Simulated assay, not measured.
Amino acid sequence: MTDTRAKRGRPRAFDRAEALTAATRLFWERGYEATSIGELTEAMGIRPGSLYAAFGDKKSLFKEAVHCYGRSPVGAFMGVALEEEPTARAAFTRILREAAVIYPDPAHPAGCLTISAATNVTLQDAEVEAFLRNLRNGNLGVFEARLRVAQQAGELSDAANPRALAAYFAAVIQGMSQRARDGATAAELTETAELALVAWPAARH
């Protein structure tokens, strides 16, 4: 006869990585504010007590979900392009063209989680909005740093403005994310990407 006394009261085991992936997808689809604890636990297949024990509160879960997203191929493509491409122009060309395909891909929620997940947050959740804003501004800083290196290498003319160019491409990428959420296709976003690349300044002569 099996002794079940040791199991009595023990919380049901679950795959933490799978649960986090489910939470990430739900936050990505609905945003932080519109996603309730009840919806999260249902999607993750766990009880509220298990969520709090494993992830902390909703804000902590969201922050971990964003970091999970950032490590995924869908969330990391910009950093990968900047690291792998030999020139800044090749890197930004790849980023824009890949964003045009990734953001409207029906295999996952449209757009970028980091860009869209904190819309319409309440005052008590301003920390979440600031968290995502800091991540986006961090990406902007990475863009600018790469462009300054390109300018020093002669890839951009001395007249080029790396700060303004970084801000421009960040604005285009954020706009592409929103357009994808509004139903824009990969073909439409590719047209946007190609138009944006026309703004690339001349190299140093």
Rank of each mutant, 00 (worst) to 15 (best):
T2Y: 13
A6P: 09
R8Y: 09
R8H: 01
A13C: 13
D15M: 13
A17K: 13
L20I: 03
T21P: 07
R25Y: 06
E29A: 02
E33W: 09
E33R: 08
E39K: 02
E39T: 10
L40H: 03
L40S: 01
T41V: 01
I46P: 03
I46M: 02
P48Y: 04
G49P: 08
S50E: 06
K59Y: 03
K59E: 12
K63V: 04
V66H: 04
C68H: 11
C68M: 09
L82E: 15
P86N: 12
T87K: 10
R89T: 10
R94Y: 07
I95H: 00
A99F: 02
A100E: 07
P106M: 01
C112A: 04
A117G: 01
D125M: 15
A126R: 15
V128M: 01
A130R: 12
N134D: 14
R136C: 12
G138Y: 01
G138L: 07
A145S: 13
V149P: 14
A150W: 15
A150L: 14
Q151D: 13
G154Q: 14
A159W: 07
A160P: 12
N161V: 07
P162L: 09
A166M: 05
A166R: 05
Y168R: 03
F169Q: 09
I173A: 00
A184C: 10
T190A: 08
E191S: 07
T192P: 05
E194D: 11
A202H: 10
